[in-house]
Write a protein that binds this DNA or RNA. Structure first.
Length: 280
DNA sequence: AGTTGGACCTGACTGC
DNA sequence: TGCAGTCAGGTCCAAC
């Protein structure tokens, strides 16, 4: 699942490769990909002919900053299975290709999306916080705003389970199933514990784990385990799955204490993985 | 308002 | 071998 580390991997690579290139033509192959925009024609009208000034990220979304008298941002939401590939135009098209962005240098930026949960949307301006997609988003985990004081006040009113709150983009942006499981293991906290039950030292462990686990995920270019199909823009898989302590390790011995890893359904239907001995 | 469950989507996997 | 059923989870929406 593309979460913050996968989106940041794509952002960094695109920043090196496509800044300065012009987006000549945008072709939609799967209509659903433009559903947030309303119409494919509007998406094309807002983006075609503009140059890419920069590449950003908000939570799990990759942002292409396009130039013009009235600048535009193309929001790439990866959903569950979204991939961005940068290829020579002569490269054969994968059947999962949902949209093609033709650049003026002979390359294609292709958006692949097996399960069609992803989307492309163009919004005016370059400030993500002014866009409806992100209006409810909490702070970025690596921002100054995301400090212990914020954590304390944001958790105080939450009766929901930690595993749920960590994945709530309103609490902090960018965390999904994989990294919430791994973060809670590193913090030594059970995903089923209520968010507001944390003591000061526990909050500090959680804060540190959020930053460390996400940073390690970025460093390893994201997770590409089992059915996680993540690849970077050149088609290379990430390596964070080699660092998994609990995610998708149900029944396997904990790497720290040997206790079999448990899997418990979370409100919302997702399963959380955790070690009954290491996590309290 | 915060929390919860269902819907969307399709490839991979399980069981008979 | 085949086919129905289940699972995976990011995000939105309706209902408590």
């Amino acid at each position: 699942m593309p979460e913050l580390p996968e989106a940041e991997t794509i952002r960094r690579q695109l920043e090196e490769e496509v800044v300065g290139a012009r987006l000549q033509r945008l072709t939609i192959h799967v209509g659903r990909v433009a559903r947030e925009q309303g119409s494919e024609a509007e998406l094309r009208a807002l983006t075609e002919g503009r140059s890419i000034e920069g590449v950003g990220r908000r939570g799990k979304a990759v942002l292409l900053f396009l130039d013009g008298r009235q600048p535009v941002t193309l929001i790439i939401r990866l959903g569950m299975t979204g991939l961005v590939r940068l290829v020579d135009r002569r490269e054969p098209q994968d059947k999962a290709t949902a949209a093609t962005l033709e650049l003026n240098d002979g390359r294609d930026l292709r958006f692949l999306d097996q399960r069609q949960f992803g989307s492309l949307t163009a919004r005016p301006g370059h400030d993500p916080d002014a866009m409806p997609e992100f209006s409810h988003y909490g702070p970025e985990p690596f921002s100054e705003e995301f400090d212990l004081e914020y954590l304390k006040s944001a958790l105080a009113r939450r009766t929901a389970k930690l595993g749920v709150v960590l994945m709530d983009q309103q609490f902090v942006a960018g965390i999904g199933k994989i990294y919430s499981d791994e973060i809670l293991f590193q913090a030594g906290l059970r995903p089923g514990r209520s968010a507001k039950s944390l003591t000061g030292p526990m909050r500090e462990r959680l804060w540190r784990a959020i930053r460390e686990v996400l940073a390690k995920g970025i460093e390893r270019h994201g997770s590409s385990a089992r059915d996680e199909t993540f690849r970077d823009i050149r088609g290379v898989p990430g390596r964070f799955q080699e660092c998994f302590y609990v995610y998708q390790r149900t029944g396997e011995p904990c790497r720290v204490c040997g206790t079999p890893i448990r899997r418990t359904p979370l409100p919302g239907g997702r399963g959380m993985h955790w070690c009954p001995t290491c996590q309290k």
